[in-house]
Write a protein that binds this DNA or RNA. Structure first.
Lengths: 346, 346
DNA sequence: CTGTTAGCGCATTCAC
DNA sequence: GTGAATGCGCTAACAG
């Protein structure tokens, strides 16, 4: 059917003009006669011509394509993030390469290399665990803007967009203290990530600030998963001086904590307040008794993309670190839980 | 810092060979001396050369990039699908453009056009609602393989990969009948989609097959949402001749049905059996009493990608329609529910 | 085995 | 306003 790919010269001779004229109407230049423009466009349409952006990119050595690599698209949080990026990227007339690494650093290296070969003009990446600043060397060497989202990589001289981990946990602690809780635990998470460090720091500072101080037995690590939460809350409840509330490393842990409470016939939010950090976003329709520190992944994606585009258009800006605010989402059923259980303290 | 982009000629003269030689080592041709290959590769490495796939694509007029457009990446089902595609696409050395349409046909048209301009060599698409065969005309005209997933488009002469909607519901009905249910309703969904038609047909045929016949009052439409499910189950329960079980259009409806049951102090799976079709996949950790017809979206994505790659490599094959099987996932707590409630019938 | 010669499809000076 | 050259970075024949 269709012979070979039809090009500008084809439409040029079919319209009785030269290729440059065609090129001009293609980019909507005002330098071309209205009549000829119409004629050319007609020919384009019924000849079924499709613009070859690859050739154009080659010629101008720039492309309107960006890369986005996420560590786990299966996680709704990152899916939403990708949607956020997609939205602004699309409206800006860009198209995106998307790759999922599944937390595999080697795969990540490969896809980034591949994307570079394809001439992406920018990259937003939520790094796989184990990513080092090294991994972005090629990008920065090539002067390609990069914005890291969600997880920070120490020492990488690229931009980053992070949720306010510190502030979120800080708010959570203040909220619980305001409810009258005195023994507030920190549940779940592994200490080897930057995110954990930030949230932990928020916990410590807030506990000091509200005058409760920090005792190490209230910090109970576990896997950042639902099972980990069950475990952690179990250990918390078996402490001699039982906590009455906890802020959890993330929402998975928080769900687990609720599971653990119910298994002991305790009602989350009434008998024991729990606050999660809204990472995984299962939260959407979940546990009504759960207060969460909630971050808007789609919004983050959008902002990340905007930042990236800004850098692309400004010919390369220097690294910029921006922190997106979070808000505490307090559910009805978890308000004033302390009074209800009669466990209010001095 | 980095001057302009470094090219094959740069490495060529740095290595003291010609560009073609460089080109040959780039494609790992065996036609080049081991010594020179090593030298060239060394130069490539420490010159920081990056291959320009765009130029290569232009030259060979083919690209190792495929497009994938989904209607709602926010829905875990499609996110998983995308991951499935990504996986096989990546291992095949391809990279993917991903675009989210948000059920917007115009946006879909735009992104497909954009992808064509970028020279994708294939497309997998889960069409936005309202997509017509027309929308794929440009693709087929250009000889670009397309595989439609999840939702079929009548009259489009492209390949498709669909879940076994008919068979799934058929199995579900058989299952319920096997448990002794005689009044089995079909809940939720709008009649204007192909998917609905297929599932409905499965219901009808199975009801005939097991000798229960179909009475129209047992077919209760509603929005394919959780709220719709609540509504539908309510209407079902107020029927004169109450059904004892239902198969739902999808899992959202099924969840709603369970909500509705509990609101009436009925226990799903015990007092009333409900079977959902696992579209939205919230199901993962959800209602234990719920039996679902489950489809594996990631697997579907993988198969779709494989089909696409096959067609790409075989220089374009004709349209192929394949149906992926589904299986009934029966939860422990929903087995034999009928007996437990003493509502067993003749 | 390696170097030479030509374009892939387009955008961009420059003349006309 | 429009047309004729030139080259983006690479591969694909052929020569050597």
């Amino acid at each position: 059917m269709s012979k070979d790919r039809i090009t500008v010269v084809d439409v040029a001779e079919a319209a009785g003009v030269s290729k440059s004229t065609v090129s001009l109407v293609l980019q909507a230049s005002p330098l071309v006669n209205e009549a000829t423009r119409a004629r050319v466009q007609a020919v384009i349409r019924d000849l079924g011509y499709v613009y070859n952006r690859g050739a154009a990119n080659l010629r101008q050595s720039k492309s309107r394509i960006v890369g986005i690599v996420v560590n786990d698209l299966t996680n709704s949080f990152f899916a939403e993030l990708a949607v956020g990026v997609d939205q602004v990227v699309q409206s800006a007339g860009y198209v995106q390469f998307l790759a999922n690494t599944g937390e595999n650093v080697d795969r990540q290296r490969e896809v980034i290399a591949s994307m570079m070969e394809h001439g992406i003009s920018g990259l937003v990446v939520s790094p796989a665990r184990g990513t080092t600043a090294q991994d972005f060397k090629p990008l920065v060497a090539a002067g390609i803007p990069v914005v890291i989202v969600v997880r920070n990589i120490a020492g990488s001289k690229v931009s980053s967009l992070m949720a306010d981990n510190h502030g979120g946990v800080y708010q959570a602690v203040e909220h619980l203290a305001g409810l009258g809780h005195c023994r507030i635990a920190f549940l779940g998470g592994f200490a080897d990530t930057a995110v954990f460090a930030e949230r932990m720091q928020g916990y410590r500072e807030a506990m000091e600030k509200v005058g409760l101080g920090v005792s190490d037995d209230l910090v109970i690590g576990s896997a950042p998963s639902r099972a980990g939460g069950v475990d952690a809350v179990g250990r918390a409840l078996s402490l001699a001086d039982r906590p009455t509330a906890a802020v959890c490393f993330n929402d998975a842990v928080a769900f687990g904590a609720c599971d653990g409470l119910r298994a002991r016939k305790l009602e989350p939010g009434i008998d024991f307040a729990v606050v999660g950090f809204d990472d995984v976003i299962e939260a959407k329709a979940a546990v009504p008794a759960l207060t969460t520190v909630s971050v808007d992944p789609q919004g983050m994606g959008g902002r990340a993309a905007q930042l990236l585009l800004k850098q692309i258009n400004s010919g390369k800006a220097e690294a910029e670190a921006i922190v997106t605010s979070v808000r505490l989402a307090v559910r009805e059923s978890s308000r004033g839980g302390l009074n209800a259980s009669g466990r209010k303290s001095a």
